[in-house]
Structures are given as structure tokens and as C-alpha cells.
Simulated scan of single mutants.
Amino acid sequence: MYDFDAYLNNLIGEKELPGAVLHVQHKGSTVFHQAYGRFQDKMQQLHTMNTTTLFDIASLTKVVATLPSILWLIDNTSVELNHTIQTYIPELNHSDITIHQALTHTTGLPADIDPPVQRADNRLILQEVVNADLIHQPGSVVQYSDLGMILLGEVIERVSGVDLPTFTNTKLFKPWGLKKTMFNPPQHREIAATEWHNDHYVQGEVHDEKALHLGGASGSAGVFSTAQDVGKFGRYFLYPETQQVLSPETIRNARKHVIQNRGLGFEVWDGEGKSLSCGRRWSEGSFGHTGFTGTSLWIDPKEELIVTFLTNIVHYGRNHNMRQIRPHLHSLIHDSFTN
């Protein structure tokens, strides 16, 4: 048994994790794929986690759907990274925020809407986003923000003339063979439930409140997927020549470090500053992303290592130890396959 496998089994036993699926690829091959734990559905029936279980991947949506959609538009339309978002969303209050700034989280917009959105609210989310005040000068400070990514989701819809689920399914997911990756999945038992709300667990409905009010699909959250599909996506970004949806050069550009451990959409480890959630053992140039529900994808190009870790840690509530779990797990995995 690998140390990381024992560690995950221990986390399940100690009830620090309800359930998880781990998918590891090394040098082009899948070397580990395992499911752990259980979850309760919205009827409070207990289910064993399977390797085929669908997860609400939360902010992984930003890199699995929104980033490649924008890259597709750059490859196939007149859209460019330095274009202002106001070009496509005229009602946006700020004329100098660019697509590049939204992808690098340097728009100057706040992290979230204030007051925070609740599931039972009746609010016009896009209207609040386009009217949001800046807290920094655009381009000056990295401030991780859902708002910039929500704007990019709207840009994709306005340029393409179709909604985000249709665009991502026809232009990205189907051509890439990501058959279990989608917004607004059909209701079935094989979806890991997330958080307790009112009198039931949220299951098959997006956990993120802003995305919920945007119809279940936004540029910041809403995608459901399996560990295998997310790993397949990761493989395309490690080996861009193995796919034909985006130009390899466009993909390689998105993986590059831009500013303060951020690339286009992705976090990118540049070896300096506070270590990222993959831990300090991962090579400089490693890139990835995390999701609030307990999901992550990390890719180490130097070691050709791809780790997809999908959990529903919020099943136990929002007070959890994922900030400690992720770097320790990824360090154990890195040691197991690169030493």
C-alpha cells in the first residue's frame, strides 16, 4: 500500500473526509485510481463512493470550462486577451478591465459579492457583478475573484450566441471525450452530495450560490465531473499535442507563470512566496487549481505527474482541514512516483 493510500483511508476512518476519488497519472499512464468513503444522498440514503462518481468540482470550473472556452474564442474568433471586457459587456461599470486581467485575477474587483449570496435569495447576480466597485486599480494586485470569472462566462455566451453549457459541451467536452463532464447534470444517485441545507443534502444541484442563481452555470462554478475526466483534461494540458480542440501553443501559454504564482486561470508555482496547495515538493512550473467543495487538479510538467483529487469535504460542513490535507497528500504522492 502506498503511504498516500493509507493516509486517505485514515482520513476517512477519522471522519475528516466523507469520501473521495483519487486519480494519478505518471509519464502518460494512469498509475492509481481509487475511491474512498461514502456519502448520504438528498433522501439521506447511504452510498459507497465509486471511481465513476460525479462531483461538483466548484472552482475547477474556472480552468476546466471557462479558461479553455476563452482560449477557444482566441483561437477561432477575433477575441484577444488584451480586449476589455466592456467590449463584450457594455454595461460593465469599468472600461479598462481586460480578459487577461480576469484570467490572472488582477481585475481589481473584490473576491465576492457583498453581502454573500444565500441559496434562498432572489438576486440579480450578473447585475451586481457588472456594478461592483473596484477595490484595486486593474492590473496592479492579484485578488482571487469569482466576479472576473463570472464576467468571462458572460463574454463566452455573448460572443458565441449560445449558453455556457451548450458551448462547453459542443466545443470542448464532446471533442475531448469528456463524457461525464457537464453543467446541470441529470439527477441520479451517482452524484456525491455536498452540504446540508435546510432539511436535506444538496445533491446534483450546484453548491455555489452565485452559480445557482445564474441557472446552475457560471464562469466561476457549476461543472460536475469524474476524477477520470478531470484527469483526462489535465493530460491535454500536460501534452497539448494529444488534442485538437485548442492550438498547443495556446495551451502552453496558459500554463506559464504571469504574476504572483498565477498564470492564465491556473495557479502556477514559481518557487517563491507562500507554497501552493500541492506543497513545496512539486517542481517549479507546476500548475493547478482547487475547488471549494474539496476538489483539485495539479500537474507537474517536469515529472509528468497529474493528480486529480475530488472530494465532497463540505458534506461534513465548512469547518474542515483541507488546507492541511492537500499539501500533505500531494507531497506523499510526489514522493511515491518521483523518487
Rank of each mutant, 00 (worst) to 15 (best):
D3W: 15
N9G: 04
N9E: 13
N10H: 15
L17D: 00
G19F: 04
K27V: 07
G28K: 08
V31A: 14
F32R: 04
H33L: 08
Q34A: 01
A35Y: 15
G37R: 00
Q40K: 12
K42M: 13
H47R: 13
H47P: 05
M49L: 14
N50A: 12
N50G: 10
T51H: 03
T52N: 10
T52W: 12
T53I: 10
L54V: 10
I57E: 01
K62Q: 09
L67A: 02
P68C: 00
S69T: 09
L71M: 07
D75R: 00
T84R: 01
I85Q: 09
I89A: 10
E91A: 12
L92M: 01
N93R: 08
H94S: 14
I99F: 12
Q101A: 14
A102K: 05
T106P: 06
G108I: 07
A111E: 11
D112C: 07
V117Y: 04
D121C: 06
I125Y: 09
L126H: 04
E128A: 08
N131A: 09
V141H: 09
Q143A: 14
Y144C: 04
S145Q: 00
L147K: 01
G148K: 04
G148W: 03
L151E: 02
L151C: 02
L151A: 13
V162E: 10
L164R: 01
P165L: 14
N169P: 00
P175M: 01
M182R: 05
N184K: 14
P186D: 03
P186E: 11
H188A: 07
E190D: 15
E190W: 13
A192H: 12
A193H: 07
W196P: 05
H197D: 15
N198Y: 13
Q203N: 08
E205M: 02
D208T: 11
L212F: 15
A217R: 00
G219H: 06
G222K: 02
T226R: 01
T226W: 10
A227V: 11
V230E: 03
G231C: 06
Y236D: 02
L238P: 12
L238N: 02
S247W: 00
P248G: 02
R255Q: 08
I259N: 09
N261Y: 06
L264D: 04
L264C: 05
E267K: 12
S277F: 12
G279W: 01
E284V: 11
T290M: 14
T293H: 07
T293S: 05
G294N: 04
T295S: 06
T295I: 01
W298V: 04
D300E: 05
P301V: 10
K302N: 09
L310P: 14
L310T: 03
L310N: 13
I313C: 05
I313A: 15
V314N: 03
G317H: 11
G317V: 13
R318I: 05
N319A: 12
M322T: 01
I325K: 00
H330Y: 11
S331Y: 13
I333N: 15
I333H: 07
I333F: 04
H334D: 14
F337D: 07
